[in-house]
Design a protein around this nucleic acid. Structure first.
Lengths: 167, 167
DNA sequence: GTTAGGTGCTTCGAATTCGAAGCAATAAAA
DNA sequence: TTTTATTGCTTCGAATTCGAAGCACCTAAC
């Protein structure tokens, strides 16, 4: 019935499987390092890293959520947790009363500095160690390509809201 | 302090960021498709797919857990869920009383057949659409390389147990 | 203005996840 | 054989995750 099933070539299959496997294993390895060294979840680390990178060390909640590909409610949860630990502060935006601005604190930067070297080392050890410089370059190019493609169509982590009253 | 901090080259950084982003976005897209079409979580789909691929349609719990990079307790949970839905059966191994053998049922195969085309289409659309054949080949090669490297050292999803009484 | 719709975030409940601890069976050592 | 360690899985509790629903503010059209 309907259209005939689409297929993946053997190469595509191999690429897909290996890709998901690497992604899982890398993630686990990195999470362990972050947990052990800084008691941070992967998301928390990503949030701190993004804030640390931001020009003024602060960002809107929504932009953070989009940046790390994460649900808004989940971000609220993690931001609260980070705030309780004193690693970030949260406050309303002066421009838009609805927005919450999250800013990294000095303590947050300290923790970031604490875990960063180990994080880098873990990534190096698990992702790059077995690759040649050419491979890395290629990987960067291809992943950037796909990433751009993905960013294009689907809006973002906040799903288009209920077109509810469509009746 | 101690050793000087390791560094990632700009290319490595770009590769790492793009890689994690693609992995997140792809995962979300695929999960949505599986949920919508077959009410399956990603893990559940992976489990069914692995069982469907196995020569006799069955596997040990531990091997499944290792295969999908998943915690053992999490697998117990999902296997229970799949069993309740009649998509798999579970029973003790005749060879080793400790082992549980999970086997896919005909219904399981039906659900798998139901979601598979859409799954393939999603992967094609999100991961491969913007890539050339050469890129795909390269990606397959590099990911396989890394995957092998990762599989090598760290044992598996079941962490080396408490070498507790090391005293 | 005022009203309808859009946007930003949080709260809520349910589902999922993990690690630690526990139980049973097997393997290795003594 | 008995003791000791290892392996396979499940149960437990705590933490995390998400989507839906709700609240407040903001914007545009009237």
């Amino acid at each position: 019935m309907s259209t005939r099933p689409p297929q993946l070539s053997p190469t595509e299959l191999a690429a897909y499987f290996a890709f998901t496997e690497v992604s899982s294993l890398l993630r686990h390895a990195v999470e362990k390092q972050l947990r052990d060294v800084g008691k941070l979840s992967y998301v928390q680390f990503q949030l701190l890293a993004r804030l640390g990178d931001a020009p003024d060390g602060s960002q809107r909640m929504t932009d953070l959520a989009d940046g790390v590909v994460y649900s808004r409610s989940g971000l609220t949860y993690q931001a609260q947790s980070l705030e309780e630990r004193g690693l970030v502060t949260r406050g309303p935006s002066p421009e838009d009363e609805r927005s919450t601005i999250v800013a990294i604190t000095d303590e947050g930067r300290d923790v970031l500095a604490m875990v960063f070297p180990g994080h880098i080392a873990a990534v190096k050890a698990h992702l790059f160690e077995s690759l040649s410089a050419g491979d890395v370059e290629m990987l960067a190019r291809v992943m950037t390509q796909v990433s751009g493609h993905l960013r294009a169509e689907p809006p973002r982590s906040a799903a288009p809201r209920n077109r509810a009253l469509s009746k």
